[in-house]
Design a protein around this nucleic acid. Structure first.
Length: 587
RNA sequence: GCGCCCGUAGCUCAGUGGAUAGAGCAACCGCCUUCUAAGCGGUUGGUCGAUGGUUCGAUCCCAUCCGGGCGCGCCA
């Protein structure tokens, strides 16, 4: 079923065509939810920009649109207000029919897209042999959310992680392990990633200080690239160990198991072809021994044209080359229609440059969209880049476990003051769901592009725009079902319903906006809009809950309210699941 | 020097070419014999960094400036 807003838009366009001619049937009616409930439910502002074009005062334009508008099955008689706003108010009978329809629809009335796209979403790209850290929080949380939203709308999503698994760092690591910890490279060693990352740091230090070791490391790289069996085996052990430990963290966070690992090594064999293709496209220029593409619109500090180096003077390739190869592969082999890169805002220049080069090379068909969805930094409470007390980067695992631990402590305290007794399993499950949900929600509810301050106290706060607040709204509905012994799925669909309280209508009208919000998130890739929507939904539900008793209400209010409760809970659950957050039945 | 991002209530932040710029927190005042009060209602709080411009209309678009952050050739 089409969303209310889409239906209204269609009707308005038909009216525009009827009133002013067919060429006006495709213009944007500038339709939106009203800025104030006293103006009705939706407002169309099309008359104002149209006035000049058709040579009539805005209010007369609005009058002509309204005269041609057929919506009496949906809305009350439209009102023309102010300078020429067309205000629309949904009819109670229409609202009741909508409630029935979405209550009966597994998708809550949210349609899938007409033209599904193949979308590649970029996931965090940790470096093999290093632990995941705070820097991987946002790409994991935001990437997962975007992937889920797109998938729910019917797009074909491919999640790809561009892990750092190739090049000099691995030569270093393997050379170091060979000489110092040869047993680590046995297939059955029980090396942990923590130990591995220590070796990595040692290897880096040694590389910077010891020339003989540099040679050993370079030899290992050459052996790796040449496909030497022993070296490859060592490399594979390191990769497998790293990926297993990333999976543990992803599982804790509820990140999809569908991630396709395509590290830098994956593109290794394609890099020379990328460079020749750039040459064939006439973009390649040799400069100081390096193969470059000179960028349009970028200069270096001296004001000279800035090159993107795609092959170093020593013949090696760098990250730009790999990114170019990845884009080419995603378009040519994956047949992607849209490439979404979720990385920190500091890489904006890099992506703008890479996108420019692939476009100039002619690798990007008109129909393919390349989009960098940048995010801001996670800051500590001091407003600076988040660090441990000793100044190191914070491991992601520690950050998540701290959130769970704090939630557990708060929760136990609360149980004590309320003199409740709950099982260990219940407490553990609640602490994990709330703690992880709080971290993810705090991240997603912020405007993606701005930095945010990571504060356990704020994200775990029981009131305000937080995960606990929303989970509580969901729990309240489940409380009603328990108390009243209601099986929501068994509510007969033919019982009479009637919306009588303003709080009921306000709640339902908000629920009916879910489809538009999800569509918007799929377009502008801003999850905070969905968070805002869910927060307002929770608020409106709590107002309804406060004003309208459900179980004690006479019919038909009781059935109406039960349907509203169930539909609210399903909307919350769906919305939270699109954010990658799970719900609780009790808390 | 060039490029990008940001500047909105005491604090943290939404918002956006349209009607009176919103929320949360903090502060204060109310509401539990009633579906979990992790809730609800109310009060207080703004030259939307500055100045010009475009527009019927600008917090939003453009220009300049001020303040803060980030990036800028063989690392990723």
């Amino acid at each position: 079923m089409a969303s209310v807003q889409d239906t209204l838009r269609d009707r308005l366009q038909a009216a525009l065509g009827a009133a002013f001619g067919d060429e006006f049937a495709a213009i944007d009616p500038v339709l939106g939810v009203t800025t104030n409930p006293k103006f009705g439910d939706y407002q169309a502002n099309v008359a104002l920009p149209l006035a000049k074009r058709v040579g009539l005062p805005p209010r007369e334009v609005a009058a002509k649109v309204v005269a041609a508008l057929c919506i009496d099955d949906i809305c009350e008689v439209p009102e023309i207000a102010g300078p020429g706003f067309i205000n629309l108010t949904l009819k109670p009978a229409f609202l009741e029919a909508q409630l029935r329809a979405i209550a009966a629809d597994p998708r809550l009335g949210i349609p899938t897209v007409l033209h599904p796209q193949r979308v590649v979403v970029d996931y965090p790209s940790p470096n093999i042999a290093k632990e995941m850290h705070v820097g991987h929080l946002r790409p994991a949380v935001i990437g997962e959310c975007l992937a889920r939203v797109l998938e729910f709308l019917g797009h074909d999503v491919l999640r790809v992680s561009h892990v750092g698994d190739w090049g000099t760092p691995f030569g270093m690591l393997i050379a170091h392990l060979r000489s110092e910890y040869p047993t680590a490279l046995d297939a059955d060693s029980d090396l942990s990633l923590g130990e591995l990352s220590t070796f990595y740091r040692e290897a880096k230090q040694r590389f910077d200080a010891d020339e003989a070791f540099q040679d050993a490391a370079r030899l290992a790289v050459v052996q790796l690239q040449a496909g030497d069996a022993e070296t490859l085996k060592a490399w594979k052990i390191v990769c497998d160990l790293s990926k297993r430990s990333y999976r543990l963290i992803y599982d804790l966070m509820g990140v999809s198991p569908e991630i396709c690992d395509r590290g830098e090594s994956f593109y290794n064999s394609m890099l020379s072809a990328v460079v020749s293709a750039l040459d064939a496209a006439g973009l390649l220029v040799e400069n100081q021994g390096a193969q470059c593409v000179f960028l349009e619109g970028y200069t270096n500090k001296a004001g000279e044209p800035l090159p993107m180096i795609v092959q170093k003077s020593d013949g090696g390739y760098n990250y730009a080359t790999t990114d170019l190869a990845a884009i080419r592969y995603r378009i040519q082999e994956d047949k992607a229609d849209r490439l979404v890169y979720t990385t920190d805002v500091g890489q904006s220049n890099h992506f703008a440059q890479v996108f420019q080069v692939v476009r100039r090379a002619g690798w990007v068909p008109e129909t393919v969209e390349l989009v960098h969805a940048p995010f801001g930094l996670v800051l500590g409470e001091d407003g600076k880049r988040i660090k441990t007390r000793s100044g190191d980067t914070v491991p992601l695992k520690d950050l998540l476990e701290e959130a769970i631990a704090r939630t557990r402590t708060d929760f136990q305290q609360r149980l004590q003051t309320e003199e409740r007794s709950e099982s260990e399993d219940f407490i553990e499950d609640a602490a994990r769901t709330i703690g992880i949900g709080a971290v993810k929600y705090a991240d997603l509810s912020q405007n993606r592009t701005s930095n945010y301050i990571f504060s356990y106290d704020k994200m775990l706060a029981l009131q305000g725009n937080t995960a606990p607040y929303m989970l509580y709204a969901y729990v309240r509905v489940q409380g009603i079902s328990r108390k009243g012994n209601i099986d929501f799925d068994q509510i007969a669909s033919d019982l009479p319903i009637s919306l009588e309280d303003e709080a009921e209508r306000v709640l339902l009208k908000h629920i009916l906006q879910m489809a538009d919000v999800i569509t918007q998130v799929s377009e502008d890739l801003m999850p905070n809009r969905l968070c805002q929507y869910l927060f307002e939904l929770s608020q409106k539900f709590n107002q309804f809950y406060d004003r309208c008793s459900v179980l004690d209400a006479p019919e038909p209010q009781r059935t109406t309210r039960l349907l509203l409760c169930h539909t609210t809970a399903r909307t919350l659950k769906l919305g939270l699941s699109l954010l990658g957050i799970s719900v609780l039945e009790r808390m």
